Each structure stands twice: as C-alpha cells, then as structure tokens.
Computed example of a mutant assay.
Amino acid sequence: MRVLVVEDERRLAAAVKRGLEASGFAVDVACDGVTGLHMAREGGYDGVVLDIMLPGLSGYKVCAQLRAEENWVPVLILSAKDGEYDQADGLDLGADDYLTKPFSYVVLAARLRALLRRGARPRPAVLVAGDLHLDPAARTVRRADADIELTAREFALLE
C-alpha cells in the first residue's frame, strides 16, 4: 500500500517513513502543505498521514481542500496538537482518524491498516497482468512458473 506522509520535521518524517516501511508500506514524504496537497492529488496514494502545523498550507486546509475536491483518500492526522477541539476540528474537516504525538509506531501502523481496510477499493483477490500474478493476501509474486522475491517496498509499489 502506498502512503504519503506530510510532516515538516524532517527527522520525524524520516522516522515515520522507516517505521511504516518496516510494516510493509511504500512511503513518500512531503515536508510542507503545498507539496503535500499536490502529491495527495496526483500520487494515487492509498492513505495520507498528515501533520497539522505545516509551512505553506496547514494540514487542516490540505484535508479540507482534498474533501472539497471529492478526493476521499483516507487521511490520518498525526499532530502534536492534542486538545479535544483540535481533534474535533480535524475530524470535522474530513480526516478519518487523529493520532497525537508522541505516538506508538505499532499503533500508527495498526490504525493506518484499519483505515485502509475501510477505504480499500474493490479489486480481485489475485492481480494479473499477462503472465505476472500478484497475491496481496499471501504477499507473493509469480511470473509464468517462477516465484519472484521482492522487498516490502518493491511489493507495495508493484501492488
């Protein structure tokens, strides 16, 4: 599954990227709201992890703009803003979930998987293109009669 992380703190963005990749996600990073909005619009992501306090365009505005454009990509806000009104605002603007910093990578990955299960587009159990067969459930790839070994990132990109 392809995920976009929009986070301006570069060290945290890199850590989130590593943590999600270790859980099998293919991850791209944007470090400001304008770039994040553009990538979310154009990138065909399965989900977006979005900070609120971003340069250029706030996470609130990024989320609201995506929803105004009827872009229903699942959005999980990951923010240091932990007040109940901050969380309510994010959810009311269209976010699907809200997790506060500091956070557990185990919980972040689990909540993201839950969002992606709910927002998954219908597709066949095994994806086929010519003689290439990809089974997302078993996480296997075959071309003709040969098994192909892929890293988690390669598998996610191919999927």
Rank of each mutant, 00 (worst) to 15 (best):
M53A: 12
V73R: 01
E42N: 14
Y45L: 03
H38V: 14
A64M: 14
R11F: 15
V75H: 03
A13P: 08
L115E: 04
L116K: 05
M39Q: 13
D86P: 05
W72S: 11
G56Y: 07
D8N: 13
G56D: 07
L127D: 01
S104N: 04
C63K: 01
P136H: 05
R121G: 00
R142P: 06
G119Y: 01
L20D: 04
A114M: 14
L112P: 02
L50C: 11
V106G: 11
L78Y: 00
V34C: 12
K17Y: 06
L54I: 06
R117G: 15
L66A: 10
K101S: 05
V128K: 12
E42M: 10
L76Y: 04
G19C: 04
S104I: 04
S23F: 10
V106I: 15
A40W: 00
K81A: 02
E9V: 09
E154M: 08
V126G: 07
F25V: 02
E21T: 08
L112A: 02
A68H: 14
L54P: 01
L4Q: 05
E149D: 13
V16M: 08
V106A: 13
Q87R: 14
L158A: 07
A40S: 11
D51H: 12
R41N: 09
G24H: 05
M1K: 02
V141A: 15
L150Q: 09
E42T: 12
E154G: 06
P74L: 00
A88I: 13
L132W: 06
T35A: 14
R139M: 11
G94A: 13
A125Q: 12
P136K: 01
E154A: 10
A15P: 02
V5D: 02
A64H: 15
L50P: 07
T35P: 09
V75L: 11
D32N: 12
L20W: 00
L134R: 09
G47Q: 01
V141F: 15
G90W: 00
V49M: 05
A156Y: 07
A137N: 15
K61H: 14
A80S: 05
R111Q: 09
L78G: 05
A125M: 14
A95C: 13
G59N: 04
R117K: 15
A129L: 15
K17T: 03
I77T: 06
V5W: 03
L57K: 10
R118L: 08
R18I: 05
A129C: 15
W72M: 13
V16K: 05
R111F: 09
V141E: 14
K81L: 08
R67M: 10
T35K: 11
L108K: 04
R143M: 15
